[in-house]
Simulated assay, not measured.
Amino acid sequence: MITRESRPVAKRKGHTVIGGTVNENGVLHVRATFVGSESALAQIVRLVESAQMAKAPMQKFADEISKVFVPLVIFLSLLTWLTWFLVGRTCNSNCCDGLMVATGVGASQGILIKGGQALESAQKVDCIIFDKTGTLTGVDLS
């Protein structure tokens, strides 16, 4: 059975029998020399169990990295949520929503806003002067 042969292997008197077999002809007398935990099957089971319990070096390395990486990712995600939560509570939601809508409408009309500083400065503008080509030529911040 454990001969690693694809076909039956003939055994003669004095040959060692490792596992089960089929008796094709005659009488078969077998003496058990190894039983229980000493048998070939028990040894194979022990080898498979020890192979399953052992970790590859790369798996050990990945486990060490994940000990730091996973808590760090969880901490950063909670920090990000807390930041957005606090920004949402401190920022006037109508103003924030209006800025987002205005930025989107402006972009659809070809008006690009460089950043938040430009939007904050825009609230102080009283008058905008364009020339005939549509180029911004002056801003009155009085």
Rank of each mutant, 00 (worst) to 15 (best):
I2T: 08
I2M: 14
T3W: 10
T3Y: 11
E5V: 02
S6W: 07
P8R: 01
A10N: 08
A10Q: 08
K11L: 15
K13A: 01
K13I: 03
H15K: 01
I18M: 02
G19R: 08
G20T: 06
V22Y: 05
N25K: 03
G26K: 05
G26R: 03
L28E: 02
H29M: 07
R31K: 04
T33V: 15
V35K: 09
V35D: 10
E38A: 15
S39T: 07
A40C: 04
A40H: 02
A42H: 11
A42Q: 08
A42D: 06
Q43M: 02
I44Y: 09
V45S: 04
Q52V: 08
Q52N: 13
K55F: 01
A56R: 01
Q59F: 00
K60W: 00
F61L: 12
A62T: 04
E64Q: 12
V68E: 13
V70Q: 12
V70M: 10
P71M: 07
L72F: 13
L72Q: 14
I74E: 10
I74A: 13
F75A: 12
F75S: 08
L78H: 10
T80R: 03
W81V: 11
L82I: 05
L82A: 13
L82K: 07
L86R: 15
V87N: 12
G88I: 05
S93W: 14
N94K: 13
C96I: 05
C96E: 13
M100E: 14
A102W: 03
S108L: 11
Q109Y: 12
Q109R: 14
I111Q: 08
I111N: 10
L112W: 10
L112N: 11
I113L: 15
K114S: 15
G116D: 15
G116M: 15
Q117N: 06
Q117S: 08
L119W: 05
L119M: 15
S121H: 06
S121V: 01
I128D: 01
I128N: 04
I128S: 04
D131S: 05
T133G: 07
L141S: 08
S142H: 10
S142W: 05
